[in-house]
Design a binder for these strands. Structure first.
Length: 270
DNA sequence: CCGGACTCCTGGGTGC
DNA sequence: TGCACCCAGGAGTCCG
């Protein structure tokens, strides 16, 4: 489910409730996420939340002497509720605060994660080797172009690889490539620097706009208040197979690239 | 060092 | 209704 805009939306939603609060309890109802929730997360109890940040699609909660690291996987969401609200099916853990509120993690498919990190956070194995953040200055068309020389990999897989740039998932990769006029299956090494400049810009644009709309809700994404995101109505190609391209009216195609559905216009994208 | 296939899991939709 | 099958927003791991 969640790509960068949905994780950012979640982070912004839970931050006010968490910041400066002391953690009263860590309630784990089902530890069977992608990796078992380790006992070390209990170190959070009694600690005060100093801050939160996002790195790629990971949420980092800073508790001073380390902290929590969570990933939403394909179907995860976090919601602010009261600690005594009755948990629903797939509500796997709670971060209970002294305020009486709690952050409740919901994840039907259980591809998400809750782990503990010891300082420095960027030394965590999952965060090492990640590429630049697409909304920061070290991400550019020149960078994309330089790193792609000689690669035969499809450009869609290239921009979805966290080693190159983080946070671009299946929806926004399709959208940015459409906006750039680049065919998703084109070998990454056979795209000019000028076209990569366009692609870097469209990646930034689509992510920024999606954050403004609170993310994309296709099926079940919810923000920390239980509301959907509104970017789905602005999608230009994703899940529009057979419908007319907004630019040229040709039918949008779906093709599996790297085991994932890719949507593109066969006329506008080369 | 690639790059591609496989894997973890539940639920919703479709077609018979 | 039931059932088989396909598909889904991620990404680490393994293998050639």
């Amino acid at each position: 489910m969640p790509e960068l805009p949905e994780v950012e939306t979640t982070l912004r939603g839970i931050s006010p409730a968490l910041k400066g609060q002391r953690i009263k309890a860590m309630v784990v109802r089902n530890p069977s996420l992608r990796w078992p929730i380790p006992p070390e997360v209990q170190q959070a109890v009694g600690q005060t939340v100093l801050g939160l940040q996002r790195r790629a699609k990971y949420i980092l909660i800073d508790l001073g002497k380390g902290g929590l690291l969570s990933h939403l996987g394909m179907s995860g969401s976090m919601r602010i509720c009261h600690a005594d609200d009755v948990p629903k099916k797939h509500d796997h853990f709670d971060i209970v605060l002294e305020s009486g509120q709690c952050v409740r993690y919901h994840d039907p498919r259980r591809f998400g994660a809750l782990l503990w990190w010891d300082p420095p956070a960027h030394g965590h194995p999952l965060l090492k080797g990640l590429g630049p953040e697409p909304l920061q200055a070290d991400f550019s068309g020149e960078y994309l172009w330089k790193r792609s020389r000689g690669l035969k990999l499809a450009v869609k897989n290239y921009i979805m690889s966290g080693k190159i740039v983080v946070g671009v998932g299946n929806i926004y990769a399709s959208e940015a490539l459409y906006m750039s006029g680049i065919h998703p299956g084109r070998p990454a090494g056979r795209i000019s620097q000028a076209r990569y400049e366009t692609l870097a810009q469209t990646i930034r644009d689509v992510l920024a706009r999606a954050i403004e709309r609170g993310g994309t809700t296709l099926r079940d994404f919810q923000n920390s208040s239980g509301e959907p995101g509104y970017f789905a109505q602005e999608l230009l190609v994703y899940e529009r197979e057979g419908l007319a391209c907004f630019q040229c009216k040709a039918p949008i195609r779906r093709k599996v690239i790297g085991q994932r559905s890719s949507y593109y216009c066969p006329r506008c994208q080369r």
